[in-house]
Amino acid sequence: MMSPGKPTVKIVNLGRVAYHSALQIQQQYIRQHFDSSSQTPNTLLLCEHDPVYTTGIRRAPYPAKEEQRLKDLGAEFFRTNRGGLITFHGPGQMVCYPILNLGCFKKSVRWYVHKLEETVITMCAKFGIKASTSPDTGVWVGNNKICAIGIHCGRYITSHGLGLNCNTDMSWFDHIVPCGIKGKGVTSLNQELGRDVTIEEAAPVLLQAFSEQFNCTLCKADFLQNQ
């Protein structure tokens, strides 16, 4: 049931998808927001990636020598227009790309990032994990980051989003300084709960928390082909 006055956000589950494909898909949904003839839904893309390291737009470009070193590990490497520094995406990590018009919610990027953090904190609480924010963007359990957040926002249309470690192989993070933050580590739902927590188990809990924090109605939708 859709609630009057609440924005509707469509959930599109892309499954396992290559990172470059996810970038293209995000652009399809972004273009819809700028097409006046399109009935543009706010959309949350859920997916999982093959091993890939990505960097954001903050500070100096990542050195080519370091890029090759990471590729030699068997991962892809992409430079993106999101905020933040280097991070890893791979199997067992739930990636969420909200393609939202903030005009339907609140025209504030700071508010939006805060709400993404609160969504993950709420989800962790539902699992019995005490998570929090810190001066560094993302969601933390103690000094270990459980969820990285890096977004882009142009004309109040959001893209990129968050990567939540469920049962990720955490050894991929050993080869980088995640998000450029020295002296802190990373963690996952697996590590915190001492059991296997799949994306399939975590996704409904995250979506419930998202609907609470963004005060929206969620509904499932199919991927829009060839938009």
Results as ranks from 00 to 15, higher is better:
E118T: 06
G183R: 09
L116M: 00
L70V: 13
E201H: 03
F127S: 04
I151C: 09
Q26L: 07
R59E: 14
L224R: 14
V197I: 12
G150E: 01
P204Y: 10
A203K: 00
L23R: 13
G5C: 13
I146N: 02
P61T: 01
W172C: 10
F214L: 00
V197P: 02
T43K: 05
M2W: 08
R31Q: 09
G180C: 06
A64L: 14
R155A: 14
V120K: 02
H20A: 13
V186S: 06
L102A: 08
A131P: 09
L44V: 05
C179M: 13
M1C: 05
D174E: 13
P178V: 02
I146D: 01
Q208G: 07
V17N: 08
A22N: 03
G90D: 12
E67L: 04
L162P: 01
P204S: 14
S21H: 15
T87F: 07
L218C: 07
W111N: 12
M170D: 02
K106L: 13
K184T: 05
C179F: 13
Q39G: 08
T87M: 09
C104K: 14
F88N: 09
H33R: 14
T133Q: 05
T43H: 08
Y19D: 00
T8A: 12
Q26E: 13
Y156C: 12
P51M: 05
T54M: 03
G194H: 11
H33I: 10
T40K: 07
P7H: 12
I129K: 09
E201W: 03
K10C: 14
L207T: 02
K145T: 12
P4S: 09
T119E: 00
Y112F: 15
L73F: 06
V52H: 10
G185T: 07
T55K: 06
N167M: 07
I199Q: 03
V109Y: 02
S211F: 00
S38I: 13
C216E: 03
W111L: 11
T43C: 11
Q225N: 14
L218A: 09
T137Y: 03
A221G: 11
S21R: 15
V113T: 15
Q26P: 09
T187M: 04
D222K: 13
D169N: 15
T137Q: 03
G183Y: 10
Y62I: 11
G142H: 12
